[in-house]
Amino acid sequence: MLITRLLTPLLAIGIRLSAPLSALAIAVYSSSGPNAASIQGSVDGFRNDLGANNGVGGSFTSGRREINWDGVPAGFSDPNNLPGNFFNSNSARGAVFETPGSAFRVSANSGSATPVRFGNINPSFPTSFSVFSSQKLFTAIDSNIVDVRFFVPGTNQPGAVRGFGSVFTDVDLAGPTTIEFFDFHNNSLGKQTVLNTPGVTSLSFLGVSLEQAIINRVRITAGNAALSALDGFDFVAMDDFIYGEPQAVPAPAAVLLLGSGLAVLVWARRKSLLPE
Rank of each mutant, 00 (worst) to 15 (best):
F181G: 00
Q192E: 13
L206N: 05
V264W: 01
T221W: 04
T177F: 02
N224V: 10
F181V: 01
K191H: 00
S272W: 13
T193H: 06
M238G: 09
R270A: 13
I220Q: 04
I214T: 10
S188R: 00
V249H: 05
P246K: 12
L203P: 08
D234W: 03
V255C: 10
L230V: 03
I242M: 08
G259K: 10
P246F: 08
D234F: 01
F233T: 08
S228Y: 06
S260W: 08
R269G: 04
E211M: 13
T221F: 03
D234L: 04
T193K: 10
A237N: 05
I179E: 04
A268G: 09
E211R: 11
R270F: 11
D183M: 01
R269C: 10
L206R: 04
T197P: 06
F233I: 05
V266Y: 06
I242N: 02
A263W: 04
S202G: 15
Q192G: 09
G199M: 07
I215V: 15
V218R: 02
P250Y: 04
P252Q: 04
P275I: 13
G232Q: 02
F235Q: 07
A229V: 10
A251W: 07
V264F: 07
V194S: 09
W267D: 15
L203W: 09
V218Y: 02
D239F: 00
G190T: 02
V266S: 15
F235E: 07
V218P: 01
Q247D: 08
G199T: 10
D231V: 14
R219E: 01
T193D: 05
G223W: 03
L262W: 02
A226M: 05
G207T: 01
Q192W: 05
I215P: 01
S228R: 09
L273S: 12
A253P: 01
L257Q: 12
A268E: 14
S209L: 00
P176I: 04
A251D: 06
A225C: 07
V236T: 01
D240N: 13
I242Y: 07
F182T: 00
I220C: 03
G244K: 02
A213E: 11
R269W: 12
N224E: 11
N187I: 01
T201H: 11
N224I: 10
Q247K: 15
